[in-house]
Amino acid sequence: MAENKKALLIDITKCIGCHSCEVACKAAHELPGDPEPNLSETAFTTVQEHAGKNIRRLCMHCEEPACASACLVGALKKTSYGPVAYDKTKCIGCRYCMIACPNSVPKYEWSKLVPYVKKCDMCVNRVVQGQPTACAEACPTGATMFGGRDQLLREARRRLDNDSSYVQHIYGEREFGGTSVFFISDVPFENLGFTVAPAEEPLPQLTQAALGEVPTVVLVGGSLLAGLYWITQRRREVALAEAAEKASRKEERN
């Protein structure tokens, strides 16, 4: 199982900014146009320059994805192979995934009348068949590596141990509760435009805590309200009985 779970390791020190990954990605997903400066509905990955370094942007394929937990129809799902995949036949176009993603990765086809969500799918169709992602296959320097998640983490660790010029941090090992895309770099990640992970725990856990209160609210609230209603009814009965008694006493006196 563990070796079934694939990942990408991106070594920023090795990237030469040739944009081969972008071209290969567009070809594999039949996306039009030349490489683009930012992620878009037609660019699932891009290479940006920060502090003199070439930085790839793409979906991080979180272990516990915020987008998948947000999607009310379950169109986005973490597959056992690693990719966070999108089932366009389920999507209703609410765009909550775009709000939920801490990296704002999912993009929308605003120009279309039948729009879908677009994002890197880690070439899920190729990965399932045992092939590497298009970007990793196209990378001429090995800056983007495809492999088993555990194996790539070991490899990243080995490089950090052997070369002290690396920042001693694997971005993606713990960020967002762990991802399937890892970055290693010789420049601190906060200088390279990386999102500082907002929490140690995966974001969906924050939501689960709130959703977990639903049964309590229903049970406690329901009993409380029913109890109040019972008291109200009882008071009404008592008031009516007293009034009736008063009336009959009045009649007796007369």
Binding site: A70, C71, G74, L211
Partner: peptide, 10 residues
Amino acid sequence: YWNRHSVLFE
């Protein structure tokens, strides 16, 4: 199609 982990579903 249900996703009970989604706040929006609720």
